[in-house]
């Protein structure tokens, strides 16, 4: 049976298309695409339960593995870590049969976008939330794997980070199969791709680095030194040097340990310190001050006019 990898064939399902499951017969009407990856794509769709996210793939095995993960997730979930799974089925079309599953549609702002708008002072707060959920996941014997800003979304208010795509979640002790270079410990030559808590914590540190400047860069000749120097010299990251270093070098035994340190540090930096306050807010303040002066002048002027008129 010859098999060629599908050649990045774009999933193109026009809005309005009705998708009917071959096995369970549920119907979905496509609203719009939400995103696509190497082997599949996610669409927003109407269903009998309201809006859902549909994930399609050319590789049925891939969908089956992801569904297994999502199923286990829903069993261990106290409060929702990832999206809930609703339905698994096949869709038969003229172009072939595609496996898909329907899951909860999580509405929110992508993490990068959210921090860009609200300022870096929010980054440690979101990371604290993330670490709490990771700790729960690790205690259940799972490792997230492909942890990156694209897989995280901020819902609310009240603002809360949630996981979008848990397809890379791997049982503890196995090999991580899905990863993104910038956030991958193996790429930076700083450890294996074995699923263990420290693998996720490395990615958490890289997310912080990414959030500081919204920038990703390539590795140099001495990646460890490169990363640590970058953090030390960075105005926004330097206050968290110890925590980031701990996560990058695998020094933290658990997400809870990293969270405790980061919480201490964050309590000390927020509010009391303008190191992490954006310049933008300062210029905004200046503008506000100007506004007040102009308003005061106007009131004074009006008062003089009033007095002058009254005197006459």
């Amino acid at each position: 049976m010859p098999t060629h990898l599908p050649r990045n064939r774009a999933f193109d399902i026009p809005p309005g298309t009705m998708v009917t499951g071959k096995w369970h017969g549920k119907q979905y009407q496509i609203i719009k695409p939400l995103g696509s990856g190497g082997q599949g794509a996610v669409f927003l769709a109407h269903s009998e339960r309201g809006r859902v996210a549909l994930k399609f793939s050319t590789d049925q095995a891939n969908i089956a593995s992801e569904v297994n993960v999502l199923n286990k997730f829903s069993k261990v979930r106290g409060d929702s870590l990832g999206p809930s799974l609703y339905d698994v089925d096949d869709w038969t079309t003229g172009r072939g049969t595609f496996a898909f599953y329907a899951m909860e549609y999580i509405r929110g702002t992508p993490l990068l976008e959210c921090v860009r708008v609200r300022g870096f002072e929010w980054a440690p707060i979101f990371i604290l939330q993330l670490l709490k959920d990771l700790d729960k996941l690790h205690r259940e014997g799972w490792v997230f794997g492909d942890l990156k800003p694209e897989n995280l979304i901020v819902t609310g208010p009240p603002l809360k980070v949630r996981w979008l795509d848990v397809g890379g979640t791997t049982p503890m002790g196995r090999a991580i199969k899905e990863y993104t270079e910038f956030f991958d410990r193996g790429y930076w030559g700083m450890g294996t791709r074995k699923a263990e808590p420290s693998y996720d914590l490395f990615a958490v540190a890289m997310i912080m680095i990414n959030l500081a400047d919204m920038r990703r860069f390539e590795k140099g000749d001495d990646p460890k030194k490169q990363l640590l120097t970058y953090v030390m010299r960075h105005r926004k990251l330097a206050p968290f040097y110890d925590e980031i270093k701990g996560a990058l070098t695998g020094a933290y035994p658990s997400a809870a340990a990293m969270r405790a340190d980061l919480l201490n540090k964050t309590n000390g930096t927020i509010g009391s310190d303008d190191r992490i306050t954006n310049r933008k807010t300062r210029t905004k303040k200046k503008k506000e001050w100007k506004g007040t002066v102009i308003l005061a002048c106007a009131v004074l002027f009006a008062y003089f006019m009033y007095v002058a008129i009254f005197m006459m």
Binding site: Q60, A61, A64, S65, N68, V88, T97, R174
Partner: peptide, 21 residues
């Protein structure tokens, strides 16, 4: 495997993943 209903397919894939590991 592809002809199995999704639930059964999932169980088989678990074995495939296990062996691959």
């Amino acid at each position: 495997i592809e002809d199995l209903p999704p639930e059964k397919r999932g169980q088989v894939m678990e074995v495939v993943d296990e062996l691959g590991e």
